[in-house]
Amino acid sequence: MNTTALLARLRPLIGVVVLLAIWTIMHATRAVDPVLLPSPAEAATAFWTGITEGTLADDFFKTVVRTLWSFAIAVLVAVPLGIVFGASQKFYESIEFAIDFFRSTPASAMFPLFLVIFGVGELTKIAVAAFGAALVILFNVAYGVMGARKQRQLAARVMGAPRWRVLTDVTLLESMPQVFVGMRSGVSLALVIIIVAEMFIGSTDGLGQRVMNAQMIFDMPDMYVAIIAAGALGYAMNLVFILAERRFVHWGGK
């Protein structure tokens, strides 16, 4: 019984093990040029030296800070706006197309425009990422507020709650699951944009720049490490949001 339970818990690791095995075999049999595909051990060594002697931790941290800044700005702008837009059906309908259009525009297409406005530097990266994330969050918050079940609002009204209290006590809480969906997509998108921006907008640090640099000097182990670090970062951010959602929206889906 206990062994079965233990095996069940280890099941998600099977995929990782299989992937590592394929990687090892590919390297050992030279199915791919070893210059392009170093062994897992070489990558692990590169990871270790990158952290202990190199700038991997610093690059990682820079990317985290930029992503969080853009996410924070996006939330601060988009959540209140989303509530305002979602609270009025007519208002929302009147701006829906404009927002949908910009949301559908790839944020990377805005790089040149933002470069002109904010110049080459930190601000541009954060601004583009915040812009992209804000539109996703805005949409989800507005939908969450609009889609809130009417009956609970009626219940609050009939209990004597003034309109603004119905909004704060019922509608906002009803929209929380959708707000979290928006924030989770928003932070993922912010990370994507930051990584791309680090690659192409005159960066001297960050994971994106690290991937690009490693590729240019053909330091393949370091490139793989940087890619895996970026993946780990995205995964961790998603996980943090799922845990936060479980904590704060404990009633969701029940």
Binding site: R149, Q151, R152, D169, V170, L173, M176, V249, H250, W251
Partner: peptide, 10 residues
């Protein structure tokens, strides 16, 4: 009638 959508689950 629909208590599920009348009580506040939070």
């Amino acid at each position: 009638q629909n208590y599920r959508e009348a009580v506040f689950p939070w």
